[in-house]
């Protein structure tokens, strides 16, 4: 798989169709995001997950946004999995990246990883390497909905109480790109206090994720307190789907119903 990816990147770089490719490299003994600019430098290229599923996933799109902001006229390539590609669609929609300035190198995730990620669609639409594998059906939201209200309340209260306000969920999130963040707005979130305002802190983030979250699961992986944040955002996605027939990142050019004037579109 990596050979196909390497060939593809090499070709993109050599024929000048991209200025660079954001992908992963093995350096100093760990996997890290890397901007490859020369075809001769592709030796350390890797696909992450060297040891076990989810071992080394990075929000490469987030890196790409930073680079694209500096070099708005140049085209860059980026290594994408299914989730990353969904993220790209949303980032196009929100004007953070331009589709004609991005070339994707899509790789499918192995079944094992798809399972570990609970991924509904573990492959990108535009696939360069790897075999498409089955998506995983998710049960978590339903289970939570089946609990009674007071159980849900104490569950989330306990979960939110564990937060140490490290902002890891936000900082890792490939869909977070604001320069100023509501979570650091004193008018909304009181500062200097733990536990954080329950449920305001996490619901504020969830509301911001409502039409953005592409269910990549990096927030869950990152949270040092083990708060099941992804479950919260999955619920917002479920609402968006049930109420407005919208799924974030599934269609390339779909506008969010929350950003359309007028009543909710017909289902």
């Amino acid at each position: 798989m990596i050979d196909i990816v390497r060939q593809k990147i090499s070709k993109l770089l050599s024929d000048g169709s991209v200025k660079g490719v954001v992908a992963l490299a093995m350096a100093n003994g760990h996997v890290a995001p890397c901007l490859f600019q020369k075809e001769d430098d592709l030796e350390p290229l890797c696909l992450g997950d060297t040891k076990k599923p989810g071992d080394a996933r990075y929000p490469l799109n987030k890196v790409l946004i930073t680079i694209a902001r500096q070099y708005p006229e140049d085209v860059f390539g980026v290594l994408v999995r299914g989730c990353d590609e969904r993220g790209l669609y949303v980032l196009y929609r929100l004007n953070q990246l331009e589709p004609d300035k991005v070339m994707t190198i899509g790789i499918a995730c192995p079944q094992e990883l798809a399972k570990a990620c609970e991924c509904k669609k573990p492959y990108p639409d535009e696939l360069v390497a790897g075999e498409k594998t089955e998506g995983i059906t998710q049960q978590g939201v339903q289970d939570m909905e089946d609990m009674d209200l007071s159980k849900r309340f104490s569950f989330w209260k306990n979960q939110f109480s564990k937060c140490v306000k490290c902002y890891g969920c936000r900082d890792i999130c490939p869909m977070c790109f604001c320069r100023e963040c509501s979570l650091e707005c004193e008018d909304i979130i009181s500062k200097g206090e733990l536990p954080v305002d329950i449920p305001v802190f996490h619901l504020t983030r969830a509301m911001h994720m409502t039409d953005r979250c592409i269910d990549c699961g990096l927030c869950d992986e990152t949270c040092p307190s083990g708060i099941p944040l992804r479950l919260l955002y999955k619920k917002t996605s479920k609402i968006m789907n049930a109420e407005f027939g919208f799924t974030s990142g599934i269609n390339k050019n779909e506008q969010s119903p929350l950003n359309l004037m007028g009543p909710a579109p017909e289902k």
Binding site: N158, K162, V164, C166, L194, P224, S225, G226
Partner: peptide, 14 residues
């Protein structure tokens, strides 16, 4: 613990 050793606290929460 929750403030100074969040990763230990995570185990305790579990």
């Amino acid at each position: 613990t929750a403030t100074t050793h969040p990763l230990v606290a995570t185990r305790i929460f579990r």
